[in-house]
């Protein structure tokens, strides 16, 4: 009879009640009573994110361009096929994919490496940790300018180093075949500290027993990390990867700050910069909305397999 206790608040359905009572029951419902707490964020989120995506998709199906309002009477996927005719779109998509994958992967690996090193109980641990994390506190506007100086052909630090080790000066930004690599390198510099902190928190939460048990069983340090520690950092990896991907998409800010305009250095054009150029320089709204949709699909496509894997593992 434990169930009667829980149904106490709801009146038995057999009893006839007036509409006022029904309204009162409805208003006393847990879902309704708690709605101010979940409802407002839900609404804001719904309008700002999903409303935005929906509106973007709607525009991409029209032929909107210039200063006329979009005409929603004649919807088709013309823009989605049209973008593929442009070589600029294809190279931007390719650059975007490379940026997403390389930046996220290297950041995760480097962050993990640094976290493991820091977890060895070194001296001045907090100071070192802060030093690694600080770049993330800086705005892209600042780091872009700093890297522009670092990459300067004549006086930049990077070329002082390459000259020192005998490679000779490199045109980091001007050479289209390495410009994207230079941008990714700068972004990694800025964000590997963040992954380090995420992994460090994960490492700290692991009980020391596991290290000790592994050692008793005769596992080497390397084996301990690869077989025991790293598999337990999956949640940290997922959350860090998602955040990193968001920042990879925000690379627009970095590229924009490098040149001060919507056209990034040759060879580093990504979908976001292409989209903004087409939309806000030329007013090709529908065309750029289609690019934006592809950008969303690209981001989802990269993260989806990993999320699905995590879901199957029960980690999500």
């Amino acid at each position: 009879m434990g169930t009667t206790d829980t149904t106490e608040s709801t009146t038995p359905a057999t009893e006839e009640v007036g509409w006022e009572t029904k309204v009162r029951y409805f208003l006393n419902n847990d879902l309704v009573r708690s709605s101010p707490y979940w409802g407002i964020p839900f609404l804001l989120m719904g309008i700002a994110v999903y409303g935005g995506i929906g509106f973007n998709t709607a525009i991409s199906l029209t032929d909107a361009r210039g200063l006329q309002s979009p005409d929603y009477t004649n919807l088709d996927f013309e823009m989605y096929t049209q973008v593929f005719e442009s070589s600029a779109f294809l190279s931007a998509a390719q650059n975007n994919l490379v940026l997403l994958v390389v930046f996220t992967t290297v950041c995760l690996l480097l962050g993990l490496f640094l976290a493991v090193l820091l977890d060895q109980g070194i001296r001045h641990e907090n100071t070192v940790q802060t030093i690694y994390l600080l770049p993330m506190a800086l705005s892209f506007v600042i780091t872009a300018q700093v890297w522009l100086w670092l990459y300067n052909y004549d006086v930049g630090l990077m070329n002082i180093i390459t000259r020192g080790i005998g490679i000779g000066p490199v045109d980091w930004i001007g050479n289209p075949s390495i410009a994207l690599g230079s941008v990714i390198f700068a972004l990694i510099w800025q964000f590997s500290g963040y992954t380090m902190v995420v992994y460090l928190a994960g490492l700290r939460s692991l009980p020391d027993d596991q290290f000790e048990a592994a050692r008793v069983d005769g596992a080497s340090t390397l084996t301990t990390y690869i077989k025991i520690i790293i598999p337990q950092l999956k949640e940290a990896s997922v959350s860090a990867a998602v955040v990193l991907m968001v920042f990879a998409l925000k690379a627009f800010t970095f590229l924009y700050s490098l040149t001060g305009r919507y056209r990034p250095p040759n060879g580093t054009d990504i979908l976001a910069t292409l989209m903004v150029r087409q939309a806000f320089k030329l007013g090709k709204w529908a065309y750029s909305a289609a690019i934006a949709t592809y950008l969303l699909i690209l981001a989802l496509g990269v993260i989806a397999p990993y999320l699905y894997y995590q879901y199957r593992q029960g980690s999500l």
């Binding site: 522009l148 100086w149 990459y151 300067n152 052909y153 004549d154 006086v155 930049g156 000066p169 045109d171 980091w172 930004i173 001007g174 050479n175 001060g260 250095p265």
Partner: peptide, 9 residues
């Protein structure tokens, strides 16, 4: 021209 043209405004 100077070598650092690509990073110079």
């Amino acid at each position: 021209i100077t070598n650092d043209a690509s990073t110079s405004s």
